[in-house]
């Protein structure tokens, strides 16, 4: 019971930590756009920078 909550909190904070750290690391250069945006709809990826701001219907 207690270990479950502790482990969950640990992995959650690990993820948050790495996410924030990664987000604050600047990108080194303009990455070449190799992903085919049109067919990228097949994968609505939460962190896919090509897709994330695109919304549908609203």
């Amino acid at each position: 019971m207690v270990p479950a909550i502790v482990v969950t909190m640990l992995v959650v904070s690990l993820f948050f930590g790495t996410y924030i750290m990664n987000k604050r690391t600047p990108e080194p250069l303009e990455a070449e756009e190799v992903v085919d945006k049109e067919s990228c709809t097949a994968c609505m990826n939460y962190s896919c920078r090509y897709k994330i701001e695109e919304t549908r219907g609203d």
């Binding site: 959650v12 993820f15 948050f16 996410y19 924030i20 987000k23 939460y46 962190s47």
Partner: peptide
């Protein structure tokens, strides 16, 4: 705003 997406994942 910054931790919105990871929070959703959790």
């Amino acid at each position: 705003e910054e931790i919105r997406i990871p929070a959703y994942i959790v």
